[in-house]
Design a protein around this nucleic acid. Structure first.
Lengths: 104, 104
DNA sequence: GCGGTGTGCAACCCCACGGTTGCACTAATT
DNA sequence: AATTAGTGCAACCGTGGGGTTGCACACCGC
């Protein structure tokens, strides 16, 4: 096990996707609305939104005939917690090894 | 600004790289040593190590004629803290909007 | 001196992926 | 009825990057 969270990071690894995310963190927006603010086509944005939705970083809300999207902060907090746990584990292990090495 | 941390995530986004990271979190290893444990060539691993070093997730320690690598937990903790901050910000903003909407 | 081991550099292959264009469909608006 | 905005699907293109092979070089042990 210890399955890597690589898929989520792949979703976060693209600059355009990150741009989309931060905007959706500020307010709900449709794909078309995002397209007017960003230098890429609406279809490209639609793909990004699908990718972000897949990993649970974004959710969609139907509003009339359009589809709004918003960023899910809790998801990001969950990832953060996991990373923090792992990072601490690494340094703890290292500290333990060091303390063993310094035994008289 | 609000420059995205995309580069770091790109480093974390690959399954092989994540595999390397977890092993280096457990103990120091050279590129050749990693190559014996992983199903890829030593050169491929060397590239990954360079990428990880670039974003500060790994550091190298010369040991005799070989070069050992170890994972840097503090770096990961830093990223975790940033993500946590952003995620909370998103949800806070959303909660504020909701409370405004519910005014009588 | 010589074989094994660890590293570095370069060229190359291939596929995933970000982006595009084009078209079809539907629902509001007038 | 005609128009317009919003979405979806499909095909296509180009580049980046993960992986490989091959060679050269340095160091250690015998």
């Amino acid at each position: 096990m210890t399955r890597g969270p690589a898929p989520v990071f792949a979703a976060l690894a693209d600059e355009t996707r990150w741009d989309i995310l931060t905007r959706l963190g500020a307010r709900e927006l449709s794909a078309s609305a995002l397209a007017t603010e960003l230098p890429v086509s609406r279809q490209a944005i639609a793909k990004h939104l699908a990718a972000l939705t897949d990993v649970g970083l974004v959710e969609s809300i139907p509003v009339g005939r359009e589809i709004r999207y918003r960023a899910i902060g809790a998801r990001l907090n969950g990832i953060a917690a996991e990373l923090d746990r792992i990072g601490t584990e690494w340094d703890t292990r290292l500290a333990r090894i060091r303390s063993i090495a310094e035994r008289p």
